[in-house]
């Protein structure tokens, strides 16, 4: 009998081959794919995020856990598509114009994927109009902008502005993060959200997307 907790435990340990094996086994035993995703993979990444937040895990542990997550996702993704199981939401992610520092952005991407979001990583040094364009094309619910430098974080304001000009404000939320950022700065530039670290970014993304859904429902 497939043990979903074992999937989660091996994901936490970063044991990608074992996760692959166990996910396959669970599918063979006709465990619902959504259950494998939520109670195996996502449950595991949730623990990884909490450990990272508590300084029990560091970047190396995050990287190997995310790799294990990816291995599991590769197996179940075709079935998720086939069964039309929607992700938590679509997020376009990149670093601010001029900023080349992507460790923080990558960690946020891993955590969001690990929480069941579809992440479209558009890389480093991304111009505001490129963020908006990607959000349009991919029908994203959320744009995430990351910056390490005080000189580049200022372009985040232009992402918010460009989104307004495209008539997408309210429909696509903007979340910002990175070492020099604060909630105050997010308020100042009218970004929808700020998260101080990768694990909190997941909670913030969920909160913002819930707001989008509520708005749509009216």
């Amino acid at each position: 009998m497939a043990d979903l907790k074992e999937i989660a435990d091996n994901l936490i340990k970063g044991n990608a081959p074992r996760v692959k094996e166990l996910v396959k086994k669970a599918l063979d035993e006709r465990v619902e794919v959504e259950k494998i995703l939520n109670e195996g993979l996502i449950a595991g990444m949730d623990v990884v995020g909490k450990k990272f937040q508590a300084n029990e895990f560091y970047v190396p542990e995050m990287l190997i856990a995310a790799r294990a997550m990816k291995t599991g996702m590769e197996i179940i993704r075709p079935i998720l598509i086939q069964e039309d199981i929607k992700s938590q939401g679509i997020v376009v992610l990149g670093t601010a114009k001029g900023d080349l520092h992507d460790i923080g952005k990558n960690l946020v991407g891993m955590m969001l994927e690990g929480a069941g979001f579809e992440v479209i990583d558009i890389g480093i040094d991304v111009a505001p109009e490129v963020f908006v364009q990607a959000a349009k094309e991919k029908k994203a619910h959320l744009i995430g902008v990351s910056a390490l430098l005080t000189t580049t974080m200022v372009s985040m304001k232009d992402v918010v502005k460009a989104l307004k000009e495209a008539g997408l404000d309210g429909k696509v939320k903007v979340m910002i993060g990175g070492a020099p950022l604060t909630q105050n700065y997010a308020d100042e530039i009218e970004a929808d959200g700020y998260a101080p670290d990768a694990a909190s970014a997941v909670d913030k993304a969920k909160e913002l997307l819930k707001a989008v859904r509520d708005e749509i429902r009216g």
Partner: peptide, 12 residues
């Protein structure tokens, strides 16, 4: 160092 911890962690 990262913001809140050593990037590779004290163990590594």
């Amino acid at each position: 160092g990262g913001e809140k911890a050593l990037m590779m962690g004290p163990h590594f």
